[in-house]
Amino acid sequence: MRLIEARKLIPAYFLIVLFIAKRLHFMQFNVYEMKDLIYLCFLYTGIADMGFNLIHVTDFFLYQCILIVFLGGFYRDDILSNQELLFTRAKKRKGLFQKGTIKLVLNTSILYVLLYGTSAMVLCYKNKTKTFDVMYFLYAMLFLVTYILLINVMTMLVDVKLFLVILLTVEVFIDNFIGIALGDKFFGVFQYLKNGMASNLPYALAPIVVAFILLNMIGIKIMKTREVV
């Protein structure tokens, strides 16, 4: 019963995130403002606390994929409808969309970090009477901090391929070395993360890769057709 109720919340969750994301315009050229980030932190913490652990992993990623495509759509519409205002202010024609795409992918990644991190922490908290161990909490924090640091570092770079390679490397490192070492020892939150998300690279990276490819395709298409009125 509780599972069904939690599933009912997914569309609401989806719409709330979509609405706020649109409002914040976080996918555009400008970087996050701290207040926006804090706002999203609260939002995701709240959602995680509502019973995140009851949402099926596949559904979760499906919704994430849809969300990213929608955000990509908003991003594209904003660029298209304001192209004169934006393009004519840009220093360089080349790389405008790539930079925008990177920002979008990075910001989406931040959302993942917040979601994974907070859910891991919430699960730690909920499970404390049974299997709580300081290692769970540390793992969740490591996961969160590593990603935030990584993403912050990556915002200084413009090479998307390099970004993905490093992301993949860190994923593999966390999951296969630290993760498995801990996973063999503990159950509960780690097992959930390991089986459901963190160790399942295709699932974990698919939305990011799909978003990247789609937006680049859109970007390139716009770059090719933007002469046409």
């Binding site: 409002r23 315009h25 004169e84 205002l85």
Partner: peptide, 21 residues
């Protein structure tokens, strides 16, 4: 093609659609 835009340009072409929010 592939050149930079004119460096100092102010443009109002047709009706720009600003962000509503």
């Amino acid at each position: 093609k592939n050149c930079t835009y004119p460096a100092s340009l102010g443009v109002l072409i047709e009706n720009p659609s600003f962000w509503r929010e």
